[in-house]
Design a protein around this nucleic acid. Structure first.
Lengths: 187, 187
DNA sequence: TTCTTCATGTAAACGGTTACATGATTCG
DNA sequence: CGAATCATGTAACCGTTTACATGAAGAA
């Protein structure tokens, strides 16, 4: 547990960062596997300093705006490396409201069910195309150890995941006799 | 939010249940999309009674063991039906420690990375075979509106999901040059 | 000058987990 | 008789979200 800790350690390990920088990272690339608000990050940073995993140096931006640049300590590096290599159990199946709706689907009329399917399919299609666009931006296959490489892997993970969701939805559409009401070719 | 509420409403809607029964359901079929402990369920039941969504009747098991049989009210049925048909946004990407490890994978030696891959692949393979066994138990394709049908859909969802995870892992193994160190044919 | 971004914090509330607590019933 | 299961609750804690709060710097 306390996995936010390792996300922060991992980020700060590669370069000194402020809490603000870390917050931004959680809204960009990291959001593919973790996210956090600044209200959670600042207390965690304080705690990591207390535990000797991080150190910080106050710097002045412009005239008097103080910011805290965090760096990782030896102890922090050890802790991070130790966690990184440990193989954990499969994550518990995440709570999923859409699956819950499908589970109780017998309480829906066919048009309602069809709308649920369509809505989900449309959003998945949308997200896949956003992810694919990002892949194109990166420019096909970035070399190993490039900055872009880890993000590339995670975006591909998202694409695999969403495509599987679509395939499963098509399967459900078939199984619930909705084939004539949805143009599955579109997805 | 407060989605546990709808899970309970959906369960009680089809038949009167005790808190204990509901807890059991969360460990069986429902765990495919939601789960909860009795310590969360009992307070939620009380709250749903306060809100007029549920009613209960105390019955005696044996000599003097009291149990509360919950039934859904009209108000509860409305609330549930209302929620069931609403199409929500795609769920936020769930936090995922394995993906986080991969993201920071450049800090790992190749054998460590290979162990991570292997561990994950092995566990996914395991889980898929458990799910497939359950499909066989159910006996191929249950008819629509059967008791087994919703569970069938969700188990298939799990299989699609896990297979996609394996395909993605194979992709990562290829991209990180680990092909010679893992026998991907096994998965 | 005004708006956006940079920058850092705290407080209240919520959903969920773990642990504590109790007692009856049923089955081997 | 003892163990497993049935049955119901509470308390403490943890991770996370939403809202509250402040102010400087940079860009238009």
């Amino acid at each position: 547990m306390r996995e936010l800790k390792y996300a922060i350690l991992g980020l700060v390990k590669s370069q000194p960062l402020t809490g603000y920088d870390i917050t931004k990272s959680f809204n960009d690339s990291l959001s593919k596997f973790w996210d956090a608000r600044h209200s959670q990050i600042y207390p965690e940073l304080k705690r990591l300093v207390d535990e000797g995993m991080l150190e910080f140096k106050v710097t002045i931006q412009g005239e008097r705006l103080e910011k805290k640049l965090y760096t990782i300590t030896e102890r922090g590096k050890e802790e991070f490396a130790n966690w990184l290599g440990t193989d954990e159990e499969l994550a518990a199946t995440p709570k999923d409201a859409f699956r819950m709706r499908l589970y109780f689907g017998e309480n829906l009329t066919k048009p309602e069910l069809v709308d649920l399917y369509k809505g989900q399919l449309e959003k998945l299609k949308q997200r896949i195309s956003t992810l694919e666009k990002r892949i194109e931006e990166i420019g096909r296959v970035p070399a190993l150890k490039t900055d872009d490489f880890p993000e590339y892997l995670l975006i591909m993970g998202g694409i695999y995941r969403d495509r599987a969701s679509i395939e499963w939805l098509k399967f459900c559409i078939e199984a619930t006799d909705c084939t004539e009401l949805i143009d599955v070719e579109d997805y």
